[in-house]
Design a protein around this nucleic acid. Sequence first.
DNA 1: CTCACAATCTTGACATCGTCAACGTTCCAT
DNA 2: ATGGAACGTTGACGATGTCAAGATTGTGAG
Lengths: 218, 218
Amino acid sequence: MDDRKSAGAEAAKPREAPYHHGDLREALLRAAESELTEKGVEGFTLRGCARRAGVSHAAPAHHFRDANALLTELAAVGFGRFVAAMRARQDQAGDDPRQRLVGAGLGYIDFARANPALFRLMFSSFRPDFETLHLKTEAADAFGLLVDSVAALRGVDPRTVRSAMRDVASAWATAHGLADLLLSDRMAFMDEISDGRPEALYADIISRSVPDRPAGGG
Amino acid sequence: MDDRKSAGAEAAKPREAPYHHGDLREALLRAAESELTEKGVEGFTLRGCARRAGVSHAAPAHHFRDANALLTELAAVGFGRFVAAMRARQDQAGDDPRQRLVGAGLGYIDFARANPALFRLMFSSFRPDFETLHLKTEAADAFGLLVDSVAALRGVDPRTVRSAMRDVASAWATAHGLADLLLSDRMAFMDEISDGRPEALYADIISRSVPDRPAGGG
DNA sequence: CTCACAATCTTGACATCGTCAACGTTCCAT
DNA sequence: ATGGAACGTTGACGATGTCAAGATTGTGAG
């Protein structure tokens, strides 16, 4: 991004590592993701991040209040990429609202499989603080994408029509359950029943969660 | 269970705590569950378990190889209770195969809400070793209950009929997603759309996952 | 019965972790 | 230029998991 600021760090010419890193905050976020990917949420270490970024163990404190604050920010950027993954699948899904909703679900699974540790951090850890503004809004955006997808399918706003919000809950639970079980390797038998096209199976299962006929009681 | 062996411990007469605990292994498992419940998977501490059991920090090593081994055993007994929770709902579901499958799902959710930290340990942690025999078989039993429920509904064995195994995957993913999102407090909006009967909504969502007409391609 | 061995528990040590306080270094506005 | 603010380092503290060594108790062979 900024060539001047991130000059002497891990850029082209590491001329003896200047005292000031230049872009330590971003470097720490990258380091944190590596740490997370390699050690998992439960093996994550703040000192490990500092080492990866090439700074002393106490340096991160000047950019993140504590380890959880770093993980909170990492989860926030994770939700940003999460939304992007869902949008990507929707873009290639065409105009049919059902296919677009299914696409959101496939993107959900894409992201989980591509970023297992990050997904765990975002959905199965108590360390990120969801009251922090950035994370709160990014997570809300992800939820919003799902709500919009159901809205397009049902033609009503789930925020005001109960039956539609029930569809949101149903689709979300199904996609989330698939993603979570897949990345914890609990669905090894999937390979044997998917006829070599696992995504078609995922799509079928997600599609079931929102029947053609909206359920009554809205 | 055994009054003679668990005598001097935390039982009736704590006469100066004998050098040998008498039933430390079981006491550690109970302590571990308390520790897990109060501190969560990420705050779990082996030394904390030892303190709760009233022994020194190194005592657990004589009963469990390391902290993960203790968590592995705890997860195993957790799966035992997990199966019991599903059976309990099935027992009160009557004879209709669909209601019994839904019952299994409701039991799944019951257990998750009643034992959030334990559920997390069982499904979202890499610390338990699923290659350990006890845990492996208990987890397989839980899976077996689900398979049997689908078998009863479809009238065929999912282990040999692909379409039925797809129903297993679908029902499991849905129940699991619901449970996981509920206990991470991501579905607060459920209260507003469930008309005061959340379980009926859970049942509806689970039921969607296995349509009346089996999908083709089995 | 006894007595040596095995099982059980304790104490102490080590490396590592998150956090804090104190201090050095560099940047930048005045 | 210079002094305060921002940024980074060193050192320390208590806590953790694990290991090694010692203390205590149960137990089976004689």
